[in-house]
Amino acid sequence: MSSRTAVVTGASSGIGEATARTLAAQGLQVVIGARRVDRLQRLTDEIGATAMPLDVTDEASVAEFTDAVERCDVLVNNAGGAKGLAPVSAADLDDWRWMWETNVLGTLRMTKALLPKLIDSGDGLIVTITSVAALTHYDNGAGYTSAKHAQAVLHRTLRGELMGQPVRLTEIAPGAVETEFSLVRFNGDEERAAKVYEGIEPLVAADIAEIVGFVASRPSHVNIDQIVVKPRDQVAAGRFARRLG
């Protein structure tokens, strides 16, 4: 077992859960956080992680979680998500607030709180899971794409601010990954969520987790700045080769 400790947010499902499994298999000690503690407990029983409740939109929750983390060598900012597909003219401000609080300020809170421990580790790594939505825009997606652009700019800015410090930063920008993402976006509408992936072979959470594992296993002098990964059937956000009928 390595002495390195990895913290993974949003670990109750999808990419976060798969990443926790991957890093644990690589021998890292893994600390996982999410709001759905029952799911965290099941994962802990399987991989031997340390689980604690975490709501990245809540200052007190982040403080309690990060104070309990004694050492942090790897931080995976995975908690995030989308709400709705409304045009700007019909924007739901509560949905926008949730997306910005979760994707942007959640990443800021976790990174700021754990940065001293990442530096003290002597070889820290911050992996932020953004999206292809951080690189472009699409109709009806302004709330999510603006939040992901902001999250990515936060991460990229920190890369320069930490120059000379023993911390590496990698942004991973996935395209279509079949997780609970669309189910959350559409408020639990399973039929609508399924149509997002209809006729294509999307990425799965393990595909992204393997990339995180690769990044985390690079030697300390190697900084992989950004990885953009999409399914073969996807060229850009909202542009797919669908095999229907």
Rank of each mutant, 00 (worst) to 15 (best):
V222Y: 10
Y138L: 13
A60S: 12
S182R: 04
L105K: 02
P87Q: 09
G27C: 12
Y138N: 13
F181S: 11
E17A: 06
F240M: 14
S89K: 08
A205H: 02
H155W: 00
N77L: 03
P219L: 01
G238M: 06
S61G: 06
A194N: 08
L43F: 05
L85S: 15
E198I: 00
P53D: 04
I126L: 11
I172Y: 06
A147G: 09
A63D: 13
S89G: 14
V8P: 01
R35F: 00
V204H: 11
A176H: 09
K195S: 13
V228E: 12
G84W: 09
T22D: 09
F65R: 11
V74P: 08
G122D: 07
D67Q: 14
V74C: 08
Q26R: 13
Y197H: 11
I129E: 09
R168G: 00
N140A: 14
G175E: 08
T9D: 12
Q29A: 15
V215P: 10
V235H: 15
E171C: 03
V30H: 08
E161S: 11
G33H: 09
T136G: 01
L169G: 09
L75P: 07
D225H: 13
A216K: 06
R218D: 01
K230L: 14
D55F: 01
I224E: 02
D207G: 06
A241R: 14
P202R: 07
T57R: 15
V127Q: 09
N223H: 05
A63M: 04
K117D: 13
S2Q: 15
T179G: 03
T136A: 02
E201K: 11
